[in-house]
C-alpha cells in the first residue's frame, strides 16, 4: 500500500511504529493504578469492599468487550480486502459493543454508589473507580475514533487503500481490550476468590 514504508530505515510505517511505542508506555500508566488498587484492596475504611462486585454481570460486559475485538479485526480484514460496506458494518458493531460495555460500567457505578461505595469513601473505592474509570475513558476515546473512522469512510476521506488507519485504531482498541483482560482477573475475579477464602 504505502510506497513510503519501503523507504524508512526499518521498513515500517511511522504511524504504526509510533502507535506501538505509545502502547508500550501505556502499561506503566495502567500498572500504577492497578498497583494502587491491589495495595488498597483491604483499605475500605468501614465501607463496602470487593464483596460488592457482581461477578456475573461484569463477566457479561467483559465478554462483550472481548468480542468487540473480533469485530474490530474483522473490520480491518474487510478493509484490507477493500470491502468498505462490510468494514463499516463491523466498525459500527465494534463501537456498539464498546457502548454496551460503557453502559454496563455506568450502570455498575450507579449501583455501587447506591450501595454506599463512592469515590470519597475509602482508598479502595478511589482505587477502583479511578482505575476502571480511566479504562472506561480509553474505551470512550476508542468509540470516538471508531465513529470518526466510520464517518470519514462515508465522506471518502478514508479511502479503501488506507487500511492502515483502520489497523491503527484496531491496535488501540485491542490494547484497551487486553488491559481489561488483566483488570477483569486482577480487579474482580482474584479479589473475589481471596475474600471467600
Amino acid at each position: 500500500m504505502t510506497a513510503g514504508v519501503h523507504e524508512t530505515t526499518l521498513g515500517l510505517d511511522h504511524r504504526k511504529l509510533g502507535m506501538w511505542v505509545f502502547l508500550g508506555s501505556e502499561f506503566l500508566f495502567f500498572g500504577a493504578f492497578v498497583s494502587a488498587y491491589i495495595l488498597y484492596l483491604d483499605t475500605t475504611a468501614g465501607g463496602p469492599g470487593v464483596e460488592i462486585f457482581d461477578i456475573p454481570f461484569t463477566s457479561i460486559s467483559s465478554f462483550v468487550l472481548l468480542m468487540s475485538s473480533l469485530t474490530m479485526v474483522l473490520a480491518h480484514n474487510a478493509h484490507t480486502r477493500r470491502d468498505m460496506r462490510r468494514m463499516r458494518m463491523w466498525i459500527l458493531a465494534t463501537a456498539g459493543q464498546g457502548a454496551v460495555f460503557l453502559g454496563g460500567q455506568i450502570f455498575e457505578f450507579t449501583v455501587f454508589y447506591k450501595e454506599g461505595l463512592n469515590l470519597t469513601q475509602s482508598p479502595f473505592a478511589s482505587g477502583f473507580f479511578v482505575l476502571t474509570g480511566f479504562h472506561g475513558l480509553h474505551v470512550f476515546v476508542g468509540i470516538l475514533l471508531l465513529l470518526s473512522l466510520y464517518s470519514l469512510t462515508l465522506t471518502g476521506k478514508v479511502k479503501p487503500d488506507q487500511d492502515l488507519k483502520t489497523e491503527m485504531i484496531g491496535l488501540y482498541w485491542h490494547f484497551v481490550d487486553i488491559i481489561w483482560v488483566i483488570i477483569f482477573t486482577v480487579v474482580y475475579l482474584i479479589p473475589d476468590l481471596l475474600m471467600e477464602a
Binding site: L10, G11, L12, K16, L17, W20, V21, L23, G24, S25, E26, F27, L28, F30, G31, L66, S69, L70, M72, V73, E167, G170, L171, H174, F175, D177, I178, V181
Partner: peptide, 27 residues
Amino acid sequence: VAGFFMHLRFDTKLYGRLLYGGLFGAI
C-alpha cells in the same frame, strides 16, 4: 489477542518487544 488480533505473530518482532518490554517493565 495480542498475537492474532494485533497481528504480533505476523509483524516485525520490534512491535512485540515494545509491547512486552512495557508490560514486563511495568510488572
